[in-house]
Each structure stands twice: as structure tokens, then as C-alpha cells.
Design a protein around this nucleic acid. Structure first.
Length: 501
DNA sequence: AAAAAAC
């Protein structure tokens, strides 16, 4: 079996890899690192969880040891589809580049420009970007791409799904033809192949088996439920409580508004829960992810922003509150558990409306999924209205205000319930928990908080606003209560990357 | 039936 020491990596890189506790490269690493070090183009077919990130980070670090960055002329460029993935790659550079003195800049949306501008001005060895923010900087004349030696396009199939390809093409045109290109995709549909043909020159093709057959380590079950949301929520609560050892779980919803709604419901029911979706401000997103990784919250309700690529080791359970519309997303979602050979469990709540999609899932994964307590045809009729009404009283929208008061969450903080509940971005529960971990608050700390706010900018949720009805908007306009509490002393790792000089 | 990403 190959060893990291045989791949041609530099001593600095090898020692960081050893310190991180790795001795044997994964197949994608063993396959991609040697040709990458010889400046070959790479076509990598692999998804996260296969060690893909290190397969480009390690050779890049080695190659970057020669030469030095010039102002506004980055030497390498990595494109990622989501902000969280970009931040995750930046963390990898910190981990494996600890013996290097490289300037790494994370250029993502949702946070302030100042720090990013400063890093570009100083000269960055590595730029890790989401396409929109990179182009924004470019248009403002903050950088030149003519000095880029290595271009990494990660998660190309997802970039395609998300409509980023025109941006990617534009960016690629700004980079010299003599560059080295490392191109990664989990799947290779014809469009991606065409793209690869255009971007790559005589690439080394490295393909590793998709862990799409997660079936080996992940127990999958369908759970029949009636279609009303409150009924599904009751089924979900029963499921969660029925799990003997539930270390932590990601609960996926199809829509952002359902993420917010389910989060509120679970929170009211006393679960340790957070939420993650793309309309939340970036601070909350990062804090939420950090809190979940650190085990400060047990359940994470999420949209498909969390379905792919996010490396959260050791998730014990995945629940699909909604059946994903695209069967591929199912594979990605349940792939969040059962990682690195560990066992995991996944439960998908299926209603009559969803059978089309659950059938498609079985077809894609090539196996039938067992039903937990009988399939839809065995589902008992709902006990007509009085049962439903009782549920609604506890869980539905009607008695929301009473509910909030009863659960002791009305703390006289001048915020209207509606404003607080609807603005998922404020997340007081997490702030509370962060404080519970580190209760002490000093004047110094308050100052630190203000400057972090400054640096990262305030929540800007245009899309959220569009979706919100007027009633909520009006309510929110009066909402000038106290500034939401920050992270306590729990500064998410991602923020430290953004902020580090 | 959605989500993601620039301001």
C-alpha cells in the first residue's frame, strides 16, 4: 500500500499530514497527488468523503513553496459552489499549511469586503472563492487573474446545477492558458464531460468509486405519514425519541421556510436544535455549523445547502422530513452519515404525495427501502378533527403567541413574537447555548463582539424579504429592540479564517 | 414541489 511519503510531497506538507494523524492516502489522493505535482491537469471523479479536498490541497501547498505572491495577483484560485464548502477548504489549508507562510484568502459573499480587500492587496497565494464574490472583486478592480498558475474547479456537477457555469467560463477566460487545472466532479454527465474537455489539457483521469452505495454502512428506512405538516412533525418527534443512541442528526427539509418552521417547532418541544439554510445571514450559518460540529446542538434542521460536501464527521442519523424531489439529493443527504466506515441510520418520512419520488429513489439506488412500521397502505386513518386540532394547538400557527409564552421564551426583550420567530437569522436559542457554555461576559468581550459585527457586516437577506409577507415586514420594521446576543466566546473557526491578518 | 449564489 502507498504511503504519503511516496507521493512526492514536500517535507513541510508531510509533517503537517503526519501531525494530523494520517499515514495512508485515500485512493483519490494516491491517484491525483503525483500527477498534480508534475503539473498535469487532473480530472477527478470523486465526492467529498473520499479525501478529495486533500488531494488538491496537499500538492498545491508543495508547489506553492517556490515563488511568492505579488499584490493583487493571486497565484492559485479555487472555486467552490457554496460558502460553507469554501470555508471548509480554507480550514484544510490552515491545517496542512501550518508549516508554510502562505497568504490564504477566503472570498465569499455575505461578509464584509474590507478584510478580503486587504488580503488581495497584500498578495494572496491561494484564493478560495464562491464565483459571485470573486467576480465582484474583479469588477471592482481589486485583483488580476493573469498570475494564476493553478485553477481548481471543485464540485463541478453542482456548479452546473446551480447555474454557475457561465461564471466559471468567464473566470477561466481571465486566467492564462498555461495554467494547471484541477477539475473535480462527483458525477460525469455529458455536459460536465464537455466542460472538462474545454477546460483541461491532456488530463490525468482519476476516478474513485462513489460512496453512493452508502447502503453498506447506512441503515435506510421509509416511514409512512399523513401529509399535514403537524402530522409529519409528530412522526418525526416520535422517531427521534425512539432512537436509543442518537448522537446527533441532520434533518432535511425541501424548502427554506419549512426549515424555519420545523426548527421553531422542535425548539418549542425542547429539543437541542439549530437550523441552516441559505437565507440566513452568514454569521448565523457559520455559528450554527460550528455549534453542530462541536456538539453544542444535537439536531440540525437544514436545506440542501447542507446536503453535499459538508464534512461533519460522525453524524449518527439523517432524517428526511421531506422526500427530496431529485433522487440524487437523497444519496447526498444520507451520505452525511455513515462516513469513514462508521454506521449510520437514515429515516425518510413519506406521504402519499411523495410516492413518485420515493419510487425514483429506490430505482436510483437499485434497492428497495424497508418501511419502518408498515407502508402507506397500512397507515391508520387520522383520527378526525379533534386529534388534529389538539396537535395544531401545540404545534400549529394558531396559538403561536400563547405557545411561546408558555414555553417561557417571552423574556421581555421587546421583540414581537412574530418578528423573532420569523427571523430565523437571529437565533436566540443558539446564543443562549453559546453563553451556557461560556457564561462570563466582560466589557472587553462586548467590544470584541462589536468589532466582529463590523467586520462581517449585518444580516442582509434580500431573498428572505421578498418571500416574507407584508405583515411580517411591518412588524419587523418596529423591531429595534436590543442587538441580538453574539456568540459568547465561541468564535466559529470560519470567522477566524476570515478575520486573521 | 426547491436550493444555491453578488450587491
Amino acid at each position: 500500500m502507498t504511503n504519503f511519503a511516496d507521493l512526492g510531497l514536500s517535507q513541510k506538507v508531510l509533517s503537517a499530514v503526519t501531525d494530523a494523524g494520517y499515514a495512508t492516502p485515500t485512493p483519490i489522493q494516491a491517484g491525483a497527488i503525483p500527477p498534480a505535482l508534475q503539473r498535469r491537469d487532473i480530472l477527478g471523479i470523486a465526492q467529498t468523503g473520499t479525501g478529495k479536498t486533500a488531494s488538491f490541497v496537499l500538492p498545491m501547498l508543495t508547489l506553492l513553496e517556490k515563488g511568492r505572491a505579488r499584490a493583487r495577483m493571486p497565484r492559485t484560485l479555487i472555486l467552490e459552489p457554496t460558502r460553507e464548502l469554501a470555508a471548509q477548504v480554507a480550514e484544510n489549508f490552515d491545517k496542512y499549511g501550518k508549516n508554510h507562510k502562505l497568504n490564504i484568502a477566503l472570498l465569499i459573499g455575505g461578509v464584509s469586503f474590507d478584510e478580503q480587500d486587504r488580503k488581495l492587496e497584500r498578495g494572496a497565494d491561494v484564493l478560495i472563492c464562491t464565483p459571485g464574490r470573486l467576480l465582484d472583486h474583479f469588477e471592482r478592480g481589486k485583483l488580476l487573474m493573469t498570475g494564476v498558475e493553478i485553477l481548481v474547479i471543485d464540485e463541478a456537477d453542482r456548479m452546473l446545477d446551480m447555474g454557475f457555469i457561465p461564471d466559471i467560463e468567464r473566470i477561466a477566460k481571465l486566467i492564462p492558458f498555461t495554467r494547471q487545472t484541477l477539475f473535480f466532479s462527483a458525477t460525469m454527465p455529458p455536459e460536465i464531460q464537455k466542460l472538462a474537455d474545454r477546460f483541461l489539457q491532456n488530463p490525468e483521469r482519476v476516478e474513485v468509486a462513489r460512496p453512493a452505495s452508502t447502503a453498506n454502512t447506512v441503515t435506510q428506512r421509509f416511514v409512512a405519514a399523513h401529509g399535514k405538516d403537524y402530522e409529519k412533525r409528530a412522526v418525526l418527534r416520535d422517531l427521534i425519541r425512539a432512537q436509543g443512541e442518537l448522537k446527533n442528526a441532520i434533518i432535511f427539509c425541501n424548502r427554506k421556510k419549512d426549515v424555519a418552521e420545523l426548527f421553531r417547532s422542535l425548539d418549542r418541544h425542547g429539543f437541542s436544535v439549530g437550523a441552516l439554510h441559505g437565507d440566513m445571514d452568514q454569521r448565523s450559518r457559520m455559528a450554527m455549523l460550528a455549534n453542530f460540529k462541536d456538539g453544542n446542538i444535537q439536531l440540525l434542521v437544514a436545506s440542501d445547502v447542507a446536503a453535499r460536501g459538508l464534512d461533519i464527521p460522525d453524524v449518527s442519523h439523517v432524517f428526511n422530513f421531506d422526500v427530496p424531489i431529485h433522487a440524487e439529493d437523497y444519496v447526498h443527504r444520507i451520505g452525511r452519515t455513515g462516513r469513514a466506515g462508521r454506521s449510520g441510520a437514515s429515516f425518510t418520512i413519506v406521504t402519499k404525495r411523495d410516492t413518485k419520488f420515493s419510487d425514483a429513489i429506490e430505482k436510483l439506488i437499485g434497492q428497495t427501502v424497508e418501511w419502518l412500521n408498515g407502508d402507506l397502505s397500512q397507515l391508520p386513518e387520522p383520527m378526525e378533527s379533534h386529534d388534529g386540532r389538539r396537535e395544531r394547538g401545540r404545534d400549529g400557527r394558531k396559538d403561536r403567541k400563547k405557545d411561546v409564552e408558555r414555553s417561557g421564551r417571552a423574556r421581555g426583550d421587546h421583540k414581537s413574537d412574530a418578528a423573532r420567530i420569523d427571523n430565523v437569522t437571529e437565533f436566540e436559542p443558539v446564543a443562549e447555548r453559546a453563553e451556557a457554555v461560556k457564561p462570563e461576559r466582560s466589557a472587553d468581550h462586548k467590544q470584541g463582539h462589536a468589532s466582529r459585527n463590523d467586520r462581517l457586516g449585518r444580516a442582509q437577506n434580500a431573498a428572505n424579504d421578498d418571500n416574507r409577507d407584508r405583515r411580517h415586514r411591518n412588524r419587523r420594521d418596529h423591531d429595534d429592540g436590543p442587538t441580538p446576543v453574539g456568540f459568547g466566546d465561541e468564535i466559529p473557526a470560519f470567522m477566524l479564517i476570515v478575520g486573521k491578518a
